[in-house]
Design a protein around this nucleic acid. Structure first.
Lengths: 129, 129
DNA sequence: CTACGTGCAAACTATTTGCCTACAA
DNA sequence: TTGTAGGCAAATAGTTTGCACGTAG
């Protein structure tokens, strides 16, 4: 059986308690420390890899060269603000319907996709960024 | 005026001559050498950055932690084979129509997107990969 | 003479791994 | 005692930058 694992547990809780979609490893580390759970970067890294394997955490590609994670909640895409970097979820999936068309056009058997919108969030638009 | 720049020129030609959508910096470097144009990694890096700025080369996000590039030809999405890594273009864009819906749902002003399909290419399916 | 392209090597950034210790089963 | 979590530090991987040199304009 698994032994008590405060780092793993705290990592999962941190991600699950929040609706953030762009947890970088550093962010998780800082959050743990804020919660009074001292941990090492590599332990957080391994915990995230662990939960990803377990299917409770998903890797999010933001194209900024950093590994980013979120708690798994169901399929959704992301929007990222070009100005402040805020990330939000896009409910539903505009791509599902395109699948068979893509398969016909390319000859690939499609098994998944990753879609990231970019734009300006409400705040940044008001700020005239 | 610009001075003769054999590296830049060769980089642009290499990308333009091919229909590859997943040129990593190393790949470009090897191609240049194969063409008898000796060059340094950093020069290729700078040449790619240059053409990206000029709008003739686009960065392609494959989520494999490497910077990848292609010649700009017009808007299209990509499919990547999970097995062999082959990358092909998906003509058209299944996402355009989703834009206003996403804006309504998130409050972001959408300015762009990045879509990557994954699946198995014809060859890998036959090979039973 | 001056600006720019290039090579070489070093600096960075972020991730990944090795090894050692401690503790729960 | 045995396996595993976790800390620490070193190794990787890939990109980016600093500097010096040569040459076209």
């Amino acid at each position: 059986m698994a032994r008590p694992s405060h780092v793993r547990d705290a990592v999962r809780e941190a991600l699950t308690d929040s609706s953030r979609h762009d947890w970088a490893i550093d962010d998780v580390l800082r959050e743990l420390r804020a919660r009074g759970v001292p941990a090492d970067f590599s332990s957080v890294f391994r915990a995230l890899a662990y939960w990803e394997r377990e299917g409770l955490v998903a890797r999010v590609e933001l194209g900024d060269g950093k590994a980013r994670f979120e708690a798994v909640h169901g399929h959704h895409e992301h929007v990222r603000c070009e100005s402040c970097g805020a990330v939000a979820a896009v409910p539903g999936c505009p791509v599902e319907t395109a699948r068979s068309q893509v398969e016909r056009a390319t000859g690939f058997a499609i098994t998944g996709h990753r879609l990231l919108f970019s734009g300006l969030c409400g705040d940044c638009r008001e700020a005239g960024a």
